[in-house]
Nucleic acid binder design. Structure first.
Lengths: 339, 339
DNA sequence: TTGTAAGCGTTATCAC
DNA sequence: GTGATAACGCTTACAA
């Protein structure tokens, strides 16, 4: 596994570099014998083409940048896994970057990816991001961008996400049908559509079933700073619990498990004292204490569709004008919201 | 954010390309005014150096390849997160590749990373890997390699892992002190040291406390094929349960939660009917049903030390001969193993 | 202090 | 069918 180059092969075989290059790229203008000859030597000496040289020359790297908030989150990890699978299959490589919910870091990621010459970027913006000009500039240049999971109307690009309104509506409706009327909603602070939509679905369900909406039963807490999440969640929960809710609907993976932990710690019996349902993609939901009712997002499908889309884009395929794909969530009722 | 190059800047400023290059690299042989002049123009026009060109020239990419089995696993994700943090801090980029517990895919990953010109590779080998020649070749060339989490004696490189024997010994001892004598052990099939060591720790604890070792209480099941894991675990559990164990000690994250799920499904009361403790790094362990006693690995520390080591290596620092760092695991006793 | 030119390993455009 | 040669964008002797 040494640094053997096209030139080395050419020299050894007494042919020209271009012939070697063409032979290895299976060009039609090369004789069959020569091809075999070259290929044999190349494989024998474990020739590995230098991607950087190739990229520099052709202006394409066969790599896709993927920007997410953090990878140590089961939902994100699932999406990443499927994205990686699709890209690897298609001969593309992914470069994963974490924004850590920071706008500044997100911009840095984009720049780095751009410097790396990625052929396209898939991004799930940070909760802090309100200004999308860093992406807009790229988009206007015709640079392939796909938004997945977290989307924004600010960008006219292909997007893949879930039907948040519907998911939240179903979860809330389920709580109402279980006989609850005092239903709290806990979400993350962000300007992303996701947050609004889940809140909207919650309100729509209340309205539809003539359950009065009460502002005191809703809290948005800051989940961007990992150091302070527990503190912020605790504060929000304390305030919510003072309102004596019968049930809680949490809007993100993180919040759902944090709230479950909080309630357990404070000796609330779920679902006897209080019911709980939340967005979550943890595979452990069925074995939580109690088994957690969840709104599950089709993480792998989101990743697959988004990855397929970006690959089509970087390949220059005409896949029509930018459109948003909404996938359905799945309501998984378990003990935490059953009586 | 357009593709402006050194040449563009040089032309616009009527100076040579090399001057621009040196100015932007803050070379000492460039006048202060020129530097400012160039830098101003560069930032104004949003110059982003082409990493590929630079890499091709200098033969270094400032990137590190990271090979792991799968990233949708909380323990792995935690390590990746800390690795990413350290590398980003040091101006290195990581390229993550998944072996999916396949030896073939692992080799493909290494080749791809090598083609990408990564400056070094951090790897946690797949359970299937028994032949390490693909890595040995690199190592003999002096290519920087660091093994983390899963290690092997086959390679003379820096390694970072945990003290598996001790961790398993403590877990088993804990079960024994709780009054159990029929303690089952469930692990993954692999030739990696980890598997042997945890088994060894289990046996040492039994021996130390004069608990007879029984082969029927030990199973190694194939966890490499994600499609068949549930099936394989179920089969192993069925066999183990026939032996009426009082407690089970599971050797990996995956097995620990799978076994918990299996026992719940089959209506075993934990810890009344059977106690459970297992290696696991899930943040959800405290809120599982019941809260799961775990042997927790210092995932972030493993990642940090391994990343720091590889960076020192690629920077050419002399950090002495290859050595293995063993970190201690942490025993977290929760309800699943308490009476 | 700045400029010239060669070269990293490929691919593409010419010729032959 | 095959071979020279230029070029991708950058760094770096070597000159000036």
């Amino acid at each position: 596994m040494s640094n053997i180059t096209l030139r080395d092969i050419a020299k050894a075989l007494n042919i020209s570099v271009s012939t070697v290059s063409r032979a290895l790229n299976d060009s039609h203008e090369i004789g069959e014998e020569t091809k075999k000859f070259v290929l044999a030597y190349a494989t024998k000496h474990n020739y590995i083409p230098n991607r950087m040289a190739r990229s520099l020359k052709v202006g394409k790297t066969r790599s896709i940048g993927v920007v997410i908030c953090a990878m140590d989150n089961s939902f994100v990890a699932q999406m990443l896994d499927s994205i990686d699978q699709i890209c690897t299959q298609s001969g593309y490589q992914i470069i994963i970057m974490q924004s850590k919910e920071s706008y500044e870091q997100e911009k840095a990621c984009i720049n780095l990816l751009y410097a790396n010459g990625v052929d396209g970027i898939m991004i799930s913006p940070s909760f802090q991001t309100t200004d999308f000009s860093h992406l807009k500039e790229l988009q206007l240049q015709g640079f392939p961008i796909v938004l997945f999971d977290r989307i924004t109307a600010e960008l006219d690009v292909h997007k893949v996400t879930v039907n948040n309104i519907k998911g939240a509506f179903e979860a809330t409706t389920h709580l109402i049908s279980s006989g609850h009327t005092r239903i709290a909603h806990l979400s993350s602070i962000s300007t992303l559509g996701m947050t609004h939509e889940r809140f909207e679905g919650y309100k729509q369900a209340l309205a539809k079933h003539q359950v009065p909406y009460e502002e005191e039963l809703v809290r948005f807490c800051n989940t961007a700073d990992p150091q302070k999440i527990d503190e912020n969640v605790a504060k929000a929960m304390k305030e919510l619990l003072e309102q004596k809710p019968q049930a809680i609907f949490t809007a993100t993976d993180l919040l759902s498990t944090k709230v479950l932990a909080y309630l357990n710690e404070h000796s609330y019996k779920i679902p006897e004292d209080i019911s709980l349902i939340g967005f979550s993609n943890s595979d452990l939901a069925p074995i939580l204490n109690p088994p957690l009712s969840t709104v599950r997002q089709p993480s792998r499908q989101i990743g697959e569709i988004a990855a397929t889309t970006i690959i089509n884009l970087v390949k220059g395929k005409d896949i029509g004008p930018a459109e948003t794909i909404f996938l359905d969530t799945e309501l998984q009722i378990r003990k935490s919201s059953s009586r």
